[in-house]
Simulated assay, not measured.
Amino acid sequence: MPTREVLTASDISRSLTRIAHEILERNHGSERVTVLGIPTRGVPLARRIGERLAHTEGGAEIPVGSLDVTMYRDDLRGQPTRTLQRTDLPEPGIDDRIVVLVDDVLYSGRTIRAALDALGDLGRPAAVQLAVLVDRGHRELPIRADFVGKNLPTAATERVDVHLAEIDDVPDAVTISGGEAH
């Protein structure tokens, strides 16, 4: 299976910086923004975006946490057993906040649907926005990201892998494997 790198570490860094600026622009600053990463790779991406938001906002405190969606997934029976991850809601919670969900790859939309269900059990945000590093298409649900690092049209037979130093202990990269060579 040929593997090709489609985003390097510097591409990922630039994408996250751009996403942070777009979040600030859309929300007129960071005052009401809370950033929640979806495990596994969405969590370090959320932290990185939170750091960029804080830096751009002159050191403002940006609440960053994580949201485990495992028990809200609609594919639990058909998938291997998943390890439950942490849900960590930062102060001041999510009520009346603008929650930016962060994930690595947007594909069918089912993970995000699960995240919306999980959020509904935890509080009532003023708004929910979605930031993803990669949007690869093939949506099964009417879900669209507000902030996208890179649109990567892919074949259903291809696999998109996001490698992050914090999780994988390798340099940041996004690769595509499988499918037919282009």
Rank of each mutant, 00 (worst) to 15 (best):
Arg82His: 10
Arg18Ile: 08
Ala114Arg: 09
Arg124Cys: 05
Val102Ala: 09
Leu122Gly: 03
Gly137His: 06
Asn151His: 09
Met1Arg: 14
Arg26Glu: 14
Tyr72Cys: 05
Arg136Met: 02
Arg52Leu: 12
Arg48Pro: 00
Val128Ile: 15
Ile94Lys: 09
Pro90Met: 07
Gln79Thr: 15
Glu91Asn: 08
Glu25Gln: 11
Glu25Pro: 00
Ile167Asn: 14
Thr56Tyr: 01
Ile38Cys: 02
Gly37Ser: 07
Asp117Tyr: 11
Val162Glu: 05
Asp74Arg: 15
Arg52Gln: 12
Leu119Asn: 01
Pro80Trp: 07
Ala181Leu: 13
Arg97Gly: 03
Val132Lys: 03
Gly109Lys: 00
Gln129Asn: 12
Arg73Asp: 00
Val128Glu: 00
Ile49Tyr: 03
Arg41Asn: 14
His138Glu: 06
Ala145Phe: 04
Gly179Cys: 03
Leu101Val: 09
Thr87Leu: 10
Glu57Asn: 04
Pro44Ala: 04
Asp172Arg: 13
Ile49Lys: 08
Asp103Gln: 04
Gln129Arg: 15
Ala181Pro: 09
Ser30Leu: 01
Ser66Lys: 01
Gly178Met: 13
Ala114Ser: 05
Ile112Asn: 02
Arg26Gly: 02
Val128Leu: 01
Arg48Gln: 10
Arg144Met: 07
Gly65Val: 01
Leu45Phe: 00
Asp172Gln: 13
Ile49Gln: 05
Ser66Val: 03
Arg97Phe: 05
Ala46Cys: 10
Glu31Thr: 13
Asp169Pro: 00
Glu166Ile: 05
Val99Ala: 01
Leu141Gln: 09
Ser30Lys: 01
Gly93Lys: 11
Asp95Asn: 15
Val100Lys: 05
Glu140Asn: 10
Gly42Lys: 00
Leu101Gln: 11
Val100Met: 04
Ile176Met: 12
Arg18Thr: 15
Arg47Tyr: 04
Thr8Pro: 10
Gly120Gln: 11
